[in-house]
């Protein structure tokens, strides 16, 4: 790893991100949702944790995960990744540089969204730690898919299920209102619900489940990374 090379890739990808309307407009999505939800009801009441985390889920899936996935896929599709790999930059330099860009964009979007909505949530160490684990989960999934797909069009095949299952998880309560339904039983174990549970006061079990999801995402990204490297060598 080399800081100078990571920063060179970061600068390049920041320019690419801001000039790619498909990516750049994703940062508006959480802001738009925050604006909408903050005007629900009388507009004075604090937003429930479920809606706040829905916005977090949208930000992480639509910007963090989708952003890095699309950037990697575009590099593959346009053969620019090969140029980077043939340079002194390592794959880690490339991935870290890109991750910094999507993290910055997600943070900017979420900050704006939080300023717009009346979240009134208390941020404990556990909830902040859980938020970081959740971010890592989405980032890893985005990198893993980005490493394995060859075109931007293919990313949508992966992105839609990721967004609906992991990003918009609380929406299941609208589609399946019965709390005892098996779908609800399953979704209780999905990552975003662990963050909500931690906010509701539980700590150990949700943190363990979330850590397991993050670990699984690390294993997925490691597999994708090795597969990519072995494909490159064939």
């Amino acid at each position: 790893m080399n800081t100078g090379r990571i920063m060179a890739i970061f600068e390049k990808d920041l320019k690419e991100f801001t000039r790619n309307m498909m990516l750049f407009t994703t940062i508006l999505l959480p802001i738009f949702l925050a604006f909408m939800y903050s005007r629900m009801g009388d507009g004075e009441a604090a937003l429930p944790a479920m809606l706040v985390y829905l916005i977090v889920g949208v930000a992480f899936s639509a910007i963090l995960c989708s952003g890095i996935m699309t950037m990697m896929a575009e590099e593959n599709e346009k053969n620019t990744l090969r140029g980077l790999i043939q340079s002194p930059a390592s794959m880690m330099d490339i991935l870290i540089g890109k991750s910094l860009v999507v993290t910055l964009m997600t943070a900017a979007s979420l900050t704006a969204a939080f300023l717009l909505m009346n979240a009134a949530l208390e941020w404990s160490v556990a909830s902040i730690g859980a938020l970081l684990l959740l971010a890592l989960f989405f980032l890893n999934v985005g990198i893993a898919v980005g490493l394995t797909v060859d075109s931007v069009a293919t990313t949508s095949v992966y992105l839609l299920p990721i967004m609906f299952i992991f990003g918009f998880t609380p929406m299941v309560e609208i589609v399946v209102p019965e709390p005892d339904h098996f779908v609800r039983q399953i979704t209780d174990y999905l990552p975003l619900y662990q963050n909500i549970a931690i906010h509701d006061g539980e700590t150990v079990v949700p943190l363990l489940i979330l850590a397991a999801w993050t670990l699984a995402s690390f294993l997925y990204v490691t597999w994708a990374f090795r597969k990519r490297m072995s494909d490159e060598a064939k």
Binding site: R5, A8, I9, E11, K12, L84, S87, P88, A89
Partner: peptide, 8 residues
């Protein structure tokens, strides 16, 4: 500029 920086 990207490749200038990558190659220092």
């Amino acid at each position: 500029a990207l490749f200038r920086k990558l190659y220092n």
